[in-house]
C-alpha cells in the first residue's frame, strides 16, 4: 500500500477563481452542472454533487469575503463506503475512497449516508459519482487536477502526515499574524469520521461554509442498531405466538363482544 495521500485546502489564500472546478471537470469529463445565477454570491455551482466535485463557496461578510474550495473528504471511516451494498465504493492504495462506475447499480444508499452531503446520483445515468482524488493521475504519479490548477496553492496535495504538519505551522503563523479565527477542520484522527483525507483551514465556523460542525460516521452506531432490530424481531415473533395463545380462551368476554354478533 502506498502512503496515504490527501488534500489540505487552505481557504485563507483562496481567491475564488474556480480554476479547480474547471480543471476537475476537464480532467474527469464531469458533465455540465447548469449555468445558474443563484443571486446570493459569485457561487454558481451551489454545492457538491454528482456533477460538481470541487465547489467554491463564497461568503460575503462585513468587510471581507470568505472563499473556500470544498471537495470530498475521503474520510478515514467513510459512511458511503460502509453502506454500499455492491462494493462499487472501495478504498484505494492511496487510502482514498472511489466509486467504480461499472459496478454501481444506483441504489442511492451512499447519498443520505454521507455526513457531508458530497456524493449524489447522476439522474441521467443512474449511478453515484463523486471526487476520485484523480485516482488515474495518482496512479501515474501526478497530483490531482484541482491542486495542479490552483494558482495560489490554496489546494495542496501530498502525503497526509506531511500536510497535517504543514497545516499546523500555517495556523500558528496566522495566529501570530493576528488572524485568530483561523482553525483547522477535519485534520484530527479523533473526530467522528476518524479524520478527513481532505481537510481545511477555515476562517469561520464550519457551518458558515456549509460544512457540518461535528460530523459522525453513521455506521458507528450500527452494531447498536442491529441489536435494537434484533430485539424488535424477537418481539414480533413473540407477539405472533401470543396472538395464537388467545385461541385457547375464546370466551374471554371483551374479545367476543357478543353485542356485535349477528343473531
Amino acid at each position: 500500500m502506498a502512503e496515504r495521500m490527501g488534500f489540505f485546502t487552505d481557504t485563507s489564500v483562496c481567491i475564488g477563481c474556480k480554476a479547480c472546478e474547471v480543471a476537475c471537470k476537464e480532467w474527469n469529463d464531469v458533465p455540465d452542472d447548469g449555468f445558474v445565477f443563484r443571486a446570493t454570491s459569485y457561487d454558481n455551482t451551489g454545492s457538491l454533487g454528482a456533477d460538481t466535485w470541487r465547489h467554491v463557496a463564497f461568503i460575503e461578510q462585513d468587510g471581507r469575503w470568505l472563499m473556500s474550495s470544498d471537495v470530498c473528504k475521503h474520510c478515514t471511516q467513510a459512511a458511503c463506503l460502509d453502506v454500499c451494498p455492491t462494493g462499487a465504493l472501495f478504498r484505494t492504495e492511496f487510502d482514498t475512497v472511489v466509486v467504480q462506475p461499472d459496478i454501481c447499480n444506483g441504489c442511492g444508499y451512499c447519498v443520505p449516508a454521507c455526513p457531508y452531503g458530497v456524493i449524489d446520483r447522476r439522474e441521467r445515468d443512474g449511478r453515484a459519482w463523486k471526487c476520485t482524488m484523480c485516482y488515474d493521475r495518482l496512479r501515474g504519479g501526478m497530483e490531482p487536477a484541482c491542486a495542479k490548477a490552483c494558482p495560489t496553492d490554496s489546494i495542496q496535495f501530498g502525503p497526509l502526515d506531511e500536510l497535517r504538519e504543514r497545516a499546523e505551522a500555517r495556523v500558528e503563523r496566522l495566529h501570530a499574524d493576528g488572524v485568530l479565527e483561523a482553525r483547522l477542520y477535519g485534520e484530527s484522527p479523533d473526530d467522528g469520521v476518524g479524520g478527513d483525507g481532505a481537510f481545511f483551514l477555515l476562517l469561520d465556523e464550519p457551518e458558515t461554509y456549509g460544512l457540518p460542525p461535528d460530523p459522525v460516521v453513521t455506521t458507528r452506531d450500527l452494531p447498536d442498531m442491529w441489536r435494537w432490530a434484533g430485539g424488535a424481531a424477537l418481539t414480533l415473533a413473540g407477539a405472533v405466538a401470543v396472538s395464537f395463545l388467545r385461541v385457547s380462551f375464546p370466551r374471554v368476554p371483551f374479545l367476543q363482544a357478543s353485542f356485535l354478533r349477528r343473531r
Partner: peptide, 23 residues
C-alpha cells in the same frame, strides 16, 4: 425499479456486507 440501473440489480448479491443494511 427504484435502482438507478435496474439491469444491475444482481450486483446486490456480489458480496455480503454487514456494514450495509441494504446488503
Amino acid at each position: 425499479t427504484e435502482l438507478g440501473r435496474p439491469e444491475r440489480f444482481l450486483n446486490m448479491l456480489r458480496l455480503l456486507k454487514f456494514t450495509s443494511p441494504m446488503s
